[in-house]
Design a protein around this nucleic acid. Structure first.
Lengths: 289, 289
DNA sequence: TCCAAATCGGTAGCATTACTACATCAATGA
DNA sequence: TCATTGATGTAGTAATGCTACCGATTTGGA
């Protein structure tokens, strides 16, 4: 669950309530103005929080750091990601530069978040199933449909026929035709999209293995799946903020396809290399259309 | 060109050749083992590099830092992204955990790289053109085709009809039908895909404005475009490493659509909000298919 | 080839900064 | 009310980072 470089700011938020009173004052200052805090000296931070220097040190150890120096580097590191997690909402007054920064930052933070919260064991289980598949179908609508298509494009890596029906009827029909040895990868960030749930259930009843990619544990989708890959995303209540989940989903597809491809090994890779070369030739070929 | 949090490691690599001899020794140590360097004290780093302490300080100022302390925090910050830029190649012996880490890190680094190297003025120009469009067509094949589809899905944000022909023939036909007031967004990471070049040229001759999204300046594609959006990616020679460019492209599409949507303002947003709510209802509606 | 100039690198001392031991104060329960 | 425990600040100490200065090395010109 926890990656090595676990976010310090997150840690502080989590522990804040069970800290000593003075330590909480320090925590407030750090959380309120982390960008400034990272440049402060021990004494400066102490006065800024209205406490003594040893208190600040005690605070550092309390949040899992090895002294003030360590605290500072860890804070700097977590700031690289979370710099704008606090106020990412895009407002109508933002100029273009701000929009660029916010959207990039938001996506970066989100990707990092997904990384630290991804359960490797579930991924391993998914790779096992996919590596043994006879055929793979990817189900998704809207933004998740894009992800499904992307996955389907990677079928050379998976090494078996892959499909991605975008039309609900087609999806349903495809599900009906699946059987033992086939695998369904159902993608739905909300985990509530009814057609996906139905199609997945049908496929499972026919004997196919089902893998779900969704945004939170315990959604409807996970009940219909043998393996649930939870890709956590930061909350997104803002109307302007675009769908960030699909980036994490795409990365997950990358991981799955790469892992499956590696599992196949040897001759499979030679053919991959040839395929890539052929593709390059195709791109630049001057064939008139 | 340069974002505020410009990567320190990158800076060091860039300046390394024109540094003093002893400073280069420091640079080598830092670049070789950045993870350890960030935890070193001034004296430790000095002995590790085989130089004196003042030399290390001079090195710090030479690379644009304000003393050793500042150097350390900046290094920590840049490490959050670039932790594994040096050895990202995925090898057959990697276990799943390593694959997960490497692919995430690679995508994160790459996204950050794209952010710092994106030219805001070009983006601004693109937003201007898109905001005034009567119709927008997105051209792309393969991974870029996915991006085109994603963009096309965002047409409610763009506020005008959007298309994304995936078939080369359809693309060509679409291009022939365009005219003044229409806009083509051509997506090709290599910038050499012939069919894209041809279709874009056709559209331009018919009077459409053309925007190119590509991986490097000076590619063929840029010659056919009024506005070139260069999305730089880290090199990728490895056969296993998946296409990272498409993530950056997707983020760029997010930025464009959001900026255009904001430009439209007022009533447009109310309709967006309604649309989002309606979509939520559609997802959970129990309509049998 | 030699000398002058300039740059580079190191020594030593200084100022700042982080840390620790101890004392005081506040809160809580008997 | 008093004793006990835990939290907080004071003062002193060790370390770390920084600067002034001096010697060494290199470079360019006669």
């Amino acid at each position: 669950m926890n990656a090595p470089g676990d976010n310090l700011l997150e840690q502080i938020v989590r522990l804040k309530s069970e800290l000593r009173k003075s330590d909480q004052r320090v925590a407030e200052v750090v959380l309120a103005r982390p960008q400034e805090a990272v440049d402060m000296t021990l004494a400066t931070l102490a006065t800024a929080a209205g406490v003594s220097e040893p208190t600040v040190i005690r605070f550092c150890t309390a949040v899992g750091c090895d002294g003030y120096r360590d605290f500072r580097t860890k804070l700097a590191r977590s700031l690289a990601f979370a710099r704008s997690t606090s106020h990412t909402a895009i407002s109508a007054g933002d100029d273009l530069g701000k929009i660029v920064t916010k959207i990039f930052d938001y996506n970066l933070s989100n990707l990092h978040w997904a990384q630290t919260h991804l359960d490797s064991r579930q991924v391993a289980a998914a790779v096992d199933v996919l590596a043994g598949a006879r055929r793979i179908e990817f189900f998704g609508f809207g933004a998740s449909g894009i992800v499904a298509l992307d996955a389907q494009q990677k079928f050379p890596l998976f090494g078996v026929p892959c499909g991605a029906p975008l039309d609900p009827h087609q999806m349903f029909m495809t599900a009906e035709m699946l059987g033992t040895g086939d695998v369904v990868v159902a993608i739905s960030n909300t985990g509530h999209t009814v057609q996906i749930l139905q199609a997945t259930e049908v496929a499972r009843n026919r004997g196919a293995r089902t893998i779900g990619i969704t945004g939170a544990a315990g959604t409807e989708l996970t009940k219909h799946c043998d393996i649930a890959l939870i890709v956590e995303t930061l909350e997104n209540t803002d109307i302007y903020t675009p769908t960030v989940s699909r980036l994490s989903h795409l990365v997950l597809i990358d991981i799955l396809s790469t892992a499956v491809s590696l599992r196949r090994g040897g001759p499979h890779h030679d053919r991959l290399a040839e395929m890539k070369q052929g593709l390059a030739r195709l791109r630049t070929s001057d064939t008139q259309i």
